[in-house]
Design a protein around this nucleic acid. Structure first.
Lengths: 222, 222
DNA sequence: CCCTCTCACTTTGTATACAATCTACAATTA
DNA sequence: TAATTGTAGATTGTATACAAAGTGAGAGGG
């Protein structure tokens, strides 16, 4: 377990996963010694991983008081989706225009199929969710806009927790949208791809905001 | 020196500053022991600071081989400005609509004046540059879109090095644009503010790209 | 009764020490 | 000569130990 090139790198992914799957919930304190025990390493790599997650916006830190899992307000969720909406469609369109990206799209298609199978077999699960995130990642990977890719992926990760809470939504319309997107990409139709991505993001955001209205999430604390 | 709540926090800012001012240049290795000596701390907080800078995209790390200052290609610079162009104008417009932001704009006006004075006194300098960055920061601070603010500030920091290399550009048109922006903000004209910010970013990007064409920068290394 | 101060305890932050990995150059072999 | 291996030195990565800051319960005073 945790075999990366360095411990901290793998740890950061492991803790992120534990946050995304809800093992650690918004507001939970992340005690260094406790994490060190859980992952069987010393506090140093734990601290390094936590600081990286802090830079990525998943956890908050108060000096000498420790780390906590950051919560998210509806305003913040909207902001995050807004960022994705003004960048992600362009990235997919860019990738669609690049011939080299075709093999990424083919893999994306495979990942999408896998995710549908996972959903059919086990219903909404962490496995489905991870595949879904990977699908979106592959769509933009073919663009050569490295920084934009980074930003979009980070924003996706930030709202991933909330997507997972409402995965049941993913059984109807969103999957049709995913299909339309990947078909447009495979067909090389950049404009259609852009359009479908934007629509997908808009709808997903609205769905999530509706859910949050009925089941409000506490705001990020100081 | 370096009196923050924690050493690592201050260190990260100090190293960032040393990168932005060109003390450490693109491609330079950042040896931990050397930095520890320079800032008079042990290697642990140095590592933590470097990892944070890595998360912020300013330095790159190869496990067991060390950290280096990341370089930037013209493509990347364009990408970064593109991100700013699709987010920053909206943020300033948002802030302009919020009454609470007025006092931020007043401070921004003061900072702008200070920067002009600094430019008149000493010409293009690190001091001017820092004030310029602070000016842009204050313009968006009044929006309540926390994540967007974070992204824009980070992108600004990433290209700040290249802005500093060509500060002589800042003596003519850019300052007129800054004036138009702050006047629109103080007058509460959100649409004008948005327009002037977008124009400013477009022009600045084009200027920088032109400079890079004549004086090419090495691409980021593996 | 409430406020404040103290002091033990918990938790974080940093320094030092040690282990693992990489780099470069010399020695060996085909 | 060219390729490969071995080894010393340098550098990074992690564990342990210690210092500093925060927390909370109980004593004492208003």
């Amino acid at each position: 377990m945790l075999q990366g090139r360095t411990l901290a790198a793998g740890l950061s992914a492991a803790i992120r996963n534990d946050i995304l799957t809800g093992f650690y919930k918004a507001g939970d304190p992340l005690r260094q010694e406790q994490l060190a025990e859980r992952y069987q390493v010393s506090r140093i790599p734990v601290r390094e991983a936590l600081l990286q997650l802090e830079s990525q916006g998943l956890v908050a830190v108060m000096p000498h008081r420790g780390f906590v899992v950051r919560a998210m307000s509806a305003v913040e969720l909207k902001d995050i989706y807004h960022i994705r909406m003004v960048i992600e469609p362009d990235l997919v369109a860019d990738a669609t225009r690049s011939p080299a990206a075709q093999k990424l799209f083919i893999e994306a298609k495979k990942v999408l199929d896998d995710s549908l199978k996972a959903m059919a077999d086990k219903g909404p699960s962490d496995e489905y969710s991870a595949l879904h995130q990977r699908f979106h990642g592959l769509l933009i990977e073919g663009s050569n806009r490295v920084r934009s890719i980074e930003v979009v992926k980070r924003m996706h990760t930030l709202c991933e927790r909330y997507i997972r809470l409402h995965l049941s939504l993913h059984q109807g319309r969103p999957n049709e949208e995913h299909n339309k997107i990947i078909e447009a990409c495979l067909a090389g139709d950049a404009e259609a791809a852009r359009h479908h991505v934007l629509t997908h993001l808009e709808c997903t955001m609205n769905d999530l905001l509706e859910e949050l209205d009925t089941d409000p999430v506490e705001d990020a604390r100081e």
